[in-house]
């Protein structure tokens, strides 16, 4: 139960975390010659991305990727598998390779004919392990209560912002 609660708590990423993610993703892009990589948290919020700018609404695709992976995990559970660690979606031009990073995030790699699934899979495994180290550090920080909350005057400003936003819509 304690683990579940921890996993359901907030995720906080600092600039140094995202810089580490970016370095790992850049290395992955360089080695695999994939086009774009995204790190997405389990709930479908994008954490960071590198490479060519996605030609789609990244929020929507992140949400769909997370949903798709969640469904795949559920299928694995029903089939008696621990999980399907990799998920590959093949298109006529673009392909997506998904990998779980620990139990809190997903690594999505978009690639085209410039490289192959084998190349991507080869380097994704190593990248996922490196990313997991960063997520683990974040988790430990969280367990020790060292994570920052929202900025100090967030609550006060939030009320005004909400009033302004919804009053404008009417």
């Amino acid at each position: 139960m304690k683990d579940l609660q921890l996993r359901d708590a907030r995720l906080v990423f600092y600039q140094e975390d995202v810089a580490r993610f970016d370095r790992i993703l850049d290395e992955l892009l360089k080695a695999s010659e994939a086009r774009t990589t995204l790190v997405i948290d389990r709930d479908g919020h994008m954490v960071t991305w590198r490479g060519d700018s996605p030609r789609f609404d990244a929020d929507t695709v992140s949400a769909l990727i997370a949903g798709s992976y969640a469904a795949t995990r559920e299928i694995a559970r029903l089939l008696g598998e621990d999980e399907f660690t990799h998920l590959f979606q093949q298109g006529t031009r673009d392909n997506i390779h998904l990998t779980m990073v620990g139990d809190r995030a997903l690594l999505a790699v978009l690639f085209d004919e410039k490289t192959t699934l084998g190349m991507v899979r080869l380097y994704v495994k190593e990248a996922a392990q490196k990313l997991e180290v960063v997520f683990e550090a974040s988790r430990k920080r969280q367990e020790m209560g060292q994570d920052a909350g929202a900025p100090r005057d967030y609550a006060k400003q939030a009320k005004n912002q909400i009033d302004g936003f919804f009053d404008a819509i009417g």
Binding site: G145, Q146, D147, A148, G149, A150, P151, Y154, A155, I162
Partner: peptide, 19 residues
């Protein structure tokens, strides 16, 4: 309003300072 209020609740003082 409830969600954003909830966000503001959590977060230690030390962490706020750190941020």
């Amino acid at each position: 309003a409830l969600v954003l209020e909830n966000i503001s609740k959590v977060g230690s003082k030390g962490a706020q300072m750190r941020n």
